[in-house]
Structure formats: C-alpha cells, structure tokens
Simulated assay, not measured.
Amino acid sequence: MDSSMDVRYKHGTDIHVVRACYEEAGADLLAIAGVDTVEILLITPTSSMHIASFNVGTRVTALTWSPRVASPTASRDWSIEVVAAAENYKLYLLTKSAEHEEHVFEFGGGINGHHGKINDMTFCGGRGEESMRYLATVSDDKTLMVWDLNPPTTGPKPTDSDDSLMEDIIIEFPQPTAYVMTFPHPLTSVNSHPTSSTELLVADCRGSIFIKDWRADPDASEQNPWHTSSTVELVEPYALASTVTGTSKRWSGSVSWRRDSFDIIGAAYGSGFALWDLSDLRGAKPSVSGTSFPEGNGQFRWSPTSPEYFAISSSSPAHGAAINVHHAGYTNASPVQFPLGPRPLYVRSFDFLACPGIPRIAAAVGRDLIIFYIGVLP
C-alpha cells in the first residue's frame, strides 16, 4: 500500500466502530466511536476534518447513519443524524445541524430494550417517507428489534379552549417503541437493502442467515416464531459445522447485501466467505465460497460505489492488521491484501466510503483511523 495516498486520523482512545454514510448527500461523512464518544469526520481526498463530537459516556458497540443527513459540502442547511448502540444496551440518537449544536437523545434501555450486547443495526424504511422512521437492531440476547422512532402519539388532542394553557404544558418527545422478533441463537449482523422497506438480512452466530419480512403478521406461526416471516433461510455449511462440533472459537458472522442487486448476498464466517445468488438458490447453500484469512475473518463489506468488490478484515492479532479485497467475478483468485499494522494490532472495524471515484476504505487500527484507496490513482 502506498502510504502517500493514506489519510490518517489520530484519535485519543482506541477506535471501536467505523461507519461510513452511504447517502448521496452525505457520501463524504464518516462516523467513528472511541471509548465514550462518537466523532463525525468530513473526508476529502487528502484530509479529514472534524465537524461534530457526541459524548455518549460509555463504549459504543455499533453505529448507523439515518437517511436524514446532508454534508456541509452538499448543503448550507447541513444536518447529521446517527444512532449509536452502547455496551449498556441503550441506544442514542445523535443529531447536529447548521442551526443546532450536538444533541444526544437516549432510548431503548430497561425492560423494553435489549438485554445483551447490540452487535449491529440499520435503518430499514426503504427509500420512501418512512426511510428514517424505522431502525433495526440485533443482539447477543437472540432478538431482532425494529424500533419506530416516530410512534403515533396517544391521548386527547387539545381543543381551541385549551390553547391558552398550552404554553404551561411540557410535551415530551415520545419514546420509540420496538417490535421484537426472537431467534434460537445470538445474532451478529443485520442489513437492509435500499430497494426494500420490508426485508431485513439477519445473521446468527452459527452460520444461518435469514431474510425476514419484518412487517409480516407476527401471529402467523406460534410454534416457530423465528420462522414466522422468513422469506428465505440460507446456511453457511462450514460455519454451521464448526459451531455444532465446537471448533468455532467465538461468536462471529458478518453479512451484507450488495447494494446494486437485491439478489446478491455476501457473508464472512470463521476463516471463510460465501456468496449467494437469490435468483439461483441451490438448496440454501452458497453459490461461491472461499477462504480469506485462515486465522479468522472479521467484517464483510461490499463497496457501495464499485459493487463488484468486497472486503474482509482479519480478526486475529496473530496476523496483524490487514484487509483483503476480493473481486466477486474472480473469487478463485488471490485477494489483494492491504497490511495496516504489525502484530498484535488488528482491524477492529472498517467500512467502504461512498465517495465517487476509486473505492476507499476507512479502517480502525488501535487509535488510528487509516483511509486508503484500493486502486491506483490515475
């Protein structure tokens, strides 16, 4: 890797989560989470600029961008909206705009929220008016929750005679409500597709991947609630076998939809990766599979701008910090490996940027955020 093309950002603590904004109006924005804060960076070809900081007060385990976003480079009335999940099982809606300073809204804790580590989340309202209303989260507690961030209010509406009293009444923003779906095993990953407002891609720690219609009737099957609204259930056989035999060392599993095609799904489990084509299913088994890091894979990500490429991070400090980039059309070929740091460093989190041009990856290695191109500049 040519270090002259890197953009490096030094954080004050270890960086635990990296999430790029895939919305066109916010394609140059990146969210990163340290020990107890979330930082928003504006990324240029040669630099990174800090534009917001949110104090969450505890370690963040997952991040996702709301469709309600516009970068300062896209609009004078720019706005930021990110949701963070924390190790205390709570959720935090983080907002800032050209007119308002940073604001943190806490929700999801207590008996109505998750009771295990929240591993992943995504907005799932499609591209319509509800795109920013529904948020899906998955957890070690074996549940998928779809949160309504704008639930309908209840209670009588004030009449004209009550108008004079309204100034003395404090109206609280309603707490989001959640629709809960249970699964037989801990959940590690959730993904939505921009063309769908009903399906979610959910992965568990044992090698099963579900396409869930979260708007389906929850009472359709009382006997098998986790199969109630599964449109498709896929299996990664090697991951399933390793968990059954006890050779899997830890809960793992990262799954992602290819953004230009609803039919193409990719996942990383253990040391292997797998691709499925929903238009040509072969008994739920992957159409393509291979090995990326023999010591163990971390996250799986498709490039949003060059969708034929996908990347996988190494999860083992024994290998050092590295990311392999694969071409979906040449999965039998060796991937291009980008070494990012020596042992015992490893990639905690990474994501593709959505900026046009040659694809770029942002990776968290210790306290460093490293942003690099996966190709050669013209």
Rank of each mutant, 00 (worst) to 15 (best):
T153A: 12
G290H: 02
P339M: 02
I371D: 11
D163W: 09
I209P: 15
A318H: 12
S131Q: 14
M132S: 15
E129F: 09
V69A: 05
T61P: 13
M49A: 11
V104N: 09
G108M: 04
S334N: 03
P218M: 02
L377Q: 14
P218V: 01
V104A: 01
H103S: 15
A74F: 11
L165Y: 14
P156D: 05
L41T: 10
F183T: 06
A268D: 09
I265Q: 01
V17I: 10
M145D: 08
A333T: 08
V146T: 06
A333Q: 12
G113E: 10
W78V: 04
N324W: 00
H319A: 14
L201V: 06
F262P: 08
R282W: 05
D368S: 11
W257C: 02
S221D: 15
T37K: 01
S242K: 05
G357E: 14
A268L: 06
G375Q: 14
E101D: 14
S314I: 01
C205L: 13
I40E: 06
G110T: 00
S242R: 15
A241S: 14
D2E: 14
E101A: 13
C355S: 15
R59Y: 07
T44G: 13
T177K: 12
Y179E: 13
H50Y: 08
S303V: 03
S189C: 09
R360N: 05
N88R: 07
P342E: 04
Q175L: 02
V146R: 00
W147M: 02
W65C: 00
I171N: 09
S192N: 01
S316Y: 06
A311D: 11
I111V: 04
I43S: 07
A20F: 03
A220H: 06
A239N: 10
Y309E: 08
V104M: 11
V18K: 03
S303K: 02
L278S: 07
F107E: 09
V336P: 05
S248Y: 04
W276F: 08
P304I: 04
S242A: 15
V232L: 07
G366E: 09
M121Y: 01
T64L: 00
F350S: 01
G283N: 10
G126K: 03
G329I: 06
F105Q: 14
L94A: 05
S79M: 12
V146Q: 13
R19M: 14
A136K: 08
V336F: 04
T195V: 11
H114R: 00
V180S: 10
D148I: 03
E167M: 10
L93Q: 15
D163I: 04
L187T: 00
A362V: 03
W78Q: 04
K212S: 14
A220E: 12
P359G: 02
I371M: 12
S48V: 10
P307I: 02
I111K: 13
E129N: 08
R282E: 15
A274F: 08
S97Y: 07
I43A: 04
A363M: 09
E106W: 00
A62W: 06
I374Q: 07
T37G: 03
E167T: 13
V38Q: 15
S287W: 06
I312F: 07
S66Q: 04
V146D: 14
R258I: 00
R59K: 11
F352R: 03
V17K: 00
I111W: 06
G366N: 13
I15L: 13
S254N: 12
N324G: 05
G341R: 01
V347G: 03
G155Y: 06
I371R: 06
V35N: 14
L41W: 09
I111A: 15
R259K: 10
